[in-house]
Nucleic acid binder design. Structure first.
Lengths: 155, 155
DNA sequence: TTCCGTGCAAAGAGTTTGCATCTGT
DNA sequence: ACAGATGCAAACTCTTTGCACGGAA
């Protein structure tokens, strides 16, 4: 299967080198782990994925590589108030997310907004808007049907 | 001066008592600190403010009180990815914020959105949307004019 | 008197950093 | 060969928790 992030590994490798960063096996492994699926992995998720095939890559290296990728604008750090960060290397630009309160899944929302919310906010606030974040909380289509209660855990 | 949160201290006191919570001097001090100004204070900010007049109130008590207030729905916990949470007791319901990248100020956006973004997101994602957060990043009107560079710190 | 709340200090989670060793270019 | 990257462990920040004391109902 092909998708728009095909070739992103090669592009990233080139980008790293041209900016004076070395392309180490560890960095390659982190990039591969980030792009492996459409999820929004935490640093621990990335580390676990990397260790499946490169058991000696340390968590510190994962964090350091994520920092480099953030600096290059090739990964987006997402904080949903869970106590840790998630990362998105497939779509490293601001876009809305929908978070399921029951199963915890994070979905990307790629539909174009019917309005230019940044322009609206600029008008409403007087700010020069550089970016935004828009997160929706609710039940994903899957969890909507499978349970009448919306709480992740019974209190 | 009067504002819509006048009487909120009294209302909160009543709410606490009716729910079986005690109204202690510490809790009153935390509530006062939260409502003192329109900023979006962190727990440390609240603690500092409380200690101006009640030096023996511990940080743990501040956190515990914030938990109670969150449970009552009287304070909103906000996480802007700064590594700590901020709290809003004046407007404890979801509303957009605008964060200045230069001075760090957090402004409330009270203008009504021109569209029902929750309805849009529901249509776009199939989620049952329960809530959302919308944060804008940029330069506040004050910082816009005072400096041509947008970085909080020179790198 | 009976709990609930407090203060202290220690524990906890996630992230960052110092330093000696190793490696891509 | 040399600058930069790695791995380990310790440090750091914010937040939560255990426990004995203290005060309100």
């Amino acid at each position: 299967m092909t998708a728009h992030w095909d070739g992103r590994i090669e592009a990233l490798a080139e980008r790293l080198r041209s900016r004076g960063y070395r392309l180490t096996p560890q960095r390659l492994a982190v990039v591969e782990a980030l792009l492996a699926d459409g999820s929004h992995p935490s640093a621990a998720d990335v580390s676990a994925k990397v260790r499946e095939r490169h058991p000696m890559v340390s968590l510190a290296t994962v964090y350091q590589t994520l920092d480099v990728l953030k600096e290059l604008g090739e990964v987006l750090e997402l904080d949903f108030g869970e106590g840790f960060s998630r990362y998105d290397a497939r779509h490293p630009y601001p876009h809305p997310h929908a978070i399921c309160a029951r199963c915890g899944a994070v979905h990307d929302v790629h539909d174009a907004s019917p309005i230019d919310i940044a322009a609206w906010a600029s008008r409403a606030t007087g700010f020069a808007i550089h970016g935004y974040r828009l997160d929706f909380y609710g039940l994903c289509p899957c969890c909507r049907g499978s349970d009448t209660s919306s709480a992740p855990e019974g209190s």
